[in-house]
Design a protein around this nucleic acid. Structure first.
Length: 258
DNA sequence: GCGACAG
DNA sequence: ATCTTGTCGC
């Protein structure tokens, strides 16, 4: 059994990790948020990154999760895993981790290789209680996790330049576009994440720390993983894989009428 | 009380 | 997230 499998099993098997209603979930987030650690990440030392994503059926009765491990330097897929399951928690903005983590953990448990860093399709610290899904997975596994989201949930920010690589800080506060977020950050406002232009002239992505990384390292990594498309490659591949997997499972089910 | 609200 | 055709632009 790999090192990841053991961590996954510990996380999934502990009933304390899986509240059955939103009220308990919020309370648990507040407790787990204290365990998040921000620390430097040497991106040059990173080799394998696992992109994570989940695809849901329209009727909300089925889902598929995928983990795609890529070599940061060559952007080649080293290993990919997809699993199917059923939703165990409703989608509630702010409680995303409770819905997304179980299937993602299940997929990670089947990995043979050991990624250096994990990349989530969602937020980390840029969250009302500083506990987005990237923090959630990071704390449950105590492994480095980065969050990269496609839209904003929480945080004020200005618009970065149009060229690839330009960015602006996201500071604490209700989601809103402000004239100059660098000025706000200089005023001592808590920096929660970074609005990063991964592709010239295209809507930016929102990067934040999940666990055991820092914002500079997280943004550096996301930019390196997005040489051509807006969404970083490992997440892009995981998105495609879990979508295909879910459809394949559905087709197989209908074919057998059981 | 009202509006906002990752995937 | 998912359901969907065409369409605008590099």
């Amino acid at each position: 059994m790999s090192e990841i499998s053991e961590r996954v099993a510990r996380a999934l098997d502990d009933p304390e990790n899986w509240p059955r209603d939103p009220k308990e979930a919020v309370a648990l987030q507040r407790r787990l948020a204290d365990r998040v650690r921000v620390e430097p990440l040497d991106v040059d030392a990173v080799r394998l990154v696992a992109g994570l994503d989940v695809s849901y059926a329209t009727d909300n009765t089925a889902l598929s999760a995928a983990a795609v491990v890529m070599d940061v330097r060559t952007l080649e897929v080293v290993e990919s895993v997809a699993i199917s399951s059923e939703p165990s928690f409703p989608y509630i903005s702010g409680l995303f981790g409770f819905r997304e983590s179980p299937p993602v953990l299940e997929a990670l448990g089947q990995l043979k290789v050991t990624p250096d860093v994990y990349l989530c399709d969602g937020f980390g610290l840029a969250h009302p209680r500083r506990f987005g899904v990237a923090c959630h997975l990071g704390v449950l596994l105590d492994l480095p996790v980065v969050g990269s989201a496609k839209s904003v949930l929480f945080g004020r920010h200005s618009v970065p330049g149009e060229e690839r690589g330009s960015w602006t800080p996201m500071v604490a506060g209700r989601s809103e576009v402000v004239p100059d977020s660098f000025a706000l950050a200089d005023q001592g406002k808590e920096v929660l994440g970074r609005v990063l232009r991964t592709r010239a002239g295209v809507k930016p992505v929102y990067v934040s720390v999940g666990h055991r990384v820092d914002l500079d390292g997280a943004a550096d990594l996301v930019l390196r993983l997005s040489p051509k498309y807006r969404v970083p490659e490992p997440v892009r591949h995981a998105d495609k894989l879990c979508g295909e997997h879910r459809k394949a499972v559905l087709a197989a089910k209908e074919g057998r009428t059981d």
